[in-house]
């Protein structure tokens, strides 16, 4: 056990946890906007997959990681608008239509990959940007401040999202529409417009999450996300629809995963326990968040299409 507490291992465990958390955090923050406004989007994983492929392919062809991220934004925006059209304009059953978007993303990303790329080729990853000053703090600096800009940006989005949701008129409208769309409608807030905006934000962040994942790994493969989009949706629930809670969930999930990997590598978790230990991140995250989030209530209009009676 003592070897786990060696400096190098601890640094690797924490830094690894942060890396694992970032795609989940981005996707879950986006989903938080949608759910706060009453739209449940289960298609996150499909958007992530297409964003991942788009980002990967762009970097493969053009060699610029930031262009790859921009393509992730674009793909996310298009799929976000499509999702909004299905959920808001058509008022479809959100759970099932989300699964449709997921299957579309899963199949389409694989199809495009087979046709356009074929055999996986490695691509460039995001450059690491040690933050001046902070990164030279012993231990902590290496854990927290020697990541890529995407990592810092993802965490910066947490306070920004909290602020947007709680302190701006847009955020107030999101909360109102998610709780009582009839009431919001009665004072002239366009429920559809608010929900389009949040689902668009959700799509963009899911697309970015996928692109960031593929570019960070430097590779694409069929079903690259391995259902991370669904974990992101779950994190929104367990994070009690609050950006900070969502961040806590994503970090916890990433950290437990990373620590379990370290403990397995060092043989502290015996190999016979390996498969059970693989479930630990999900179980621990769910338990912890359920304990914390029990007292919060979901947005009252979540997953309910709004149709004004005429």
């Amino acid at each position: 056990m003592s070897q786990f507490f060696s400096q190098a291992i601890l640094i690797a465990a924490v830094a690894g946890g942060i890396r694992l958390a970032v795609p989940l955090l981005l996707a879950a923050l986006g989903e938080t906007y949608g759910q706060r406004s009453g739209v449940l989007n289960l298609g996150v994983d499909g958007v992530m997959l297409l964003g991942a492929f788009g980002g990967y392919f762009t970097v493969l062809e053009l060699g610029n990681v930031w262009l790859g991220l921009v393509v992730g934004v674009g793909i996310g925006a298009i799929l976000g608008l499509a999702t909004a059209f299905i959920s808001v304009t058509l008022g479809a059953e959100q759970g099932i239509s989300g699964i449709g978007v997921y299957l579309f993303g899963l199949g389409m990303s694989d199809l495009l990959f087979q046709k356009l790329v074929g055999t996986p080729l490695p691509i460039e990853s995001f450059p690491k940007v040690p933050l001046p000053g902070l990164s030279s703090i012993p231990v902590v600096g290496e854990m927290l401040f020697q990541h890529s800009l995407v990592v810092y940006a993802a965490f910066l989005l947490v306070p920004i999202s909290t602020f947007v949701i709680n302190r701006t008129t847009f955020g107030m409208n999101i909360r109102a529409v998610g709780e009582n769309p009839e009431a919001a409608d009665s004072v002239g807030i366009s429920v559809a417009r608010v929900r389009y905006a949040t689902v668009l934000i959700g799509g963009i962040l899911a697309g970015v999450a996928g692109a960031a994942l593929a570019i960070d790994l430097g590779i694409f493969q069929q079903n690259l996300t391995n259902a991370q989009g669904f974990i992101a949706v779950a994190l929104v629930y367990f994070g009690a629809w609050r950006p900070l809670g969502v961040m806590g969930g994503a970090l916890l999930y990433g950290m437990v995963n990373s620590i379990v990997l370290q403990l397995k590598t060092l043989g502290i978790i015996p190999r016979s326990w390996s498969d059970i230990a693989a479930m630990a991140p999900a179980v621990i995250t769910i338990l912890a968040l359920v304990l914390v989030a029990r007292r919060f209530r979901q947005p009252a209009a979540l997953a309910k299409p709004f149709v004004r009676e005429t």
Binding site: A8, G16, L261
Partner: peptide, 8 residues
């Protein structure tokens, strides 16, 4: 991340 852990 498993590779990262191995290298660490």
């Amino acid at each position: 991340e498993a590779a990262q852990a191995q290298i660490a």
